[in-house]
């Protein structure tokens, strides 16, 4: 924790690719260092909590756990990384920071940026997402927040896959800032072999994770993007939404295996050639007050849109007009 980086390393001897300042660290040691640091951070956080509890009481501590953990992070990395020494984890497996190319040491301002964004980043991101989420009750903005979360999630997963394959950056912020780990000593051939075999295990993990991400996220994401493209074209006014409501469509959307709404053929009574035997006065749905889409009838013979009547019959199994029994499964679509 206190050992400063060796002055010998300060001057890069050569800019040739083969003669790096120090060999890049392998994925297993980076993970090990990271875990050790997390552990230490947690211990520090608990100590701080105890300190605040004795000082300010339980209520204050409970209300401020997030802030206390930020203080713990700032303290830990401020006193180690920022002060120019190693963290306990880095000390444990002997790692030092080098630049993206591995030819220089990492500048001080980057370390400062790292410490600040590491401590405050999660809070800021979660606040922003929450604000977007609660900004309005509008289901559109909820949708949007959901999609940002989704994109963030995919981004983090891709980042992790990259780490497992290349063993370069375990922390997103370090990837952005270009703070790579190198091994802090000369590596003899035996050790190098051992490290390579360890890294290969991680590559295997990377393959598995990649498969998992691809199979889980890709179909939903593609579908989502498609929906965005489609809806941008058509949905200009809020008047556009067909009966059944926005919420119903959106929730259908994320369930896998349900065919895309736009691909189903709808019977829209605003088209006069559709079901011409239904007289003009009967073509409006009393529930949504629009011309019916997918006209459907209850056992008593009253007509409504499919979406309108099914969502009502799920709430109460009776006809809205005459109150006769009508279970959702008894509603018949007219074709």
């Amino acid at each position: 924790m206190t050992s400063r980086s060796d002055p010998r390393e300060m001057k890069p001897p050569d800019y040739d690719q083969s003669t790096l300042l120090l060999p890049f660290a392998d994925a297993p040691s980076i993970v090990q260092a990271h875990q050790k640091d997390k552990q230490t951070e947690a211990i520090l956080s608990v100590k701080l909590e105890r300190f605040f509890r004795s000082l300010k009481g339980q209520l204050f501590t409970n209300a401020c756990t997030e802030e206390i953990s930020i203080v713990a992070k700032l303290m830990y990395f401020g006193l180690t990384t920022l002060a120019g020494s190693k963290t306990l984890g880095e000390e444990y497996v002997d790692l030092v920071y080098v630049s993206r190319t591995g030819k220089e040491l990492v500048k001080r301002y980057k370390k400062l940026l790292f410490v600040l964004s590491y401590a405050l980043g999660p809070l800021v991101v979660s606040r922003i997402l929450r604000r977007w989420g609660s900004g309005s009750d509008d289901s559109d903005s909820k949708d949007k927040t959901y999609s940002y979360r989704r994109i963030l999630d995919i981004f983090l997963n891709v980042h992790l896959v990259l780490f497992y394959f290349s063993g370069s950056y375990y922390d997103v912020i370090k990837r952005i800032l270009g703070m790579r780990y190198a091994i802090g000593h000369k590596v003899n051939p035996n050790e190098a072999k051992f490290r390579t075999s360890n890294s290969n295990t991680y590559k295997f993990l990377g393959h598995i994770l990649l498969l998992k991400v691809a199979s889980e996220k890709l179909p939903a994401t593609l579908q989502y993007l498609k929906k965005l493209l489609v809806s941008e074209g058509t949905d200009s006014a809020n008047d556009m939404k067909v009966c059944g409501g926005n919420g119903v469509d959106a929730s259908h959307y994320y369930i896998k295996g349900i065919p895309d709404e736009s691909r189903l053929s709808h019977i829209d009574l605003s088209d006069k050639s559709q079901l011409p035997f239904i007289p003009e006065v009967s073509r409006t749905c009393i529930l949504c007050l629009n011309l019916m889409v997918d006209p459907s009838c209850t056992p008593c013979g009253h007509l409504f849109c499919w979406n309108c009547i099914v969502s009502w019959c799920k709430e109460r199994a009776e006809c809205p007009l005459c109150r006769q029994k009508s279970h959702p499964q008894q509603v018949l679509s007219i074709r």
Binding site: N238, D239, K241, C243, L287, C288, L289
Partner: peptide
């Protein structure tokens, strides 16, 4: 939502 928009016009 659409229903209340329609209703507003009707009212």
């Amino acid at each position: 939502m659409s229903r209340i928009v329609k209703e507003y016009k009707k009212i």
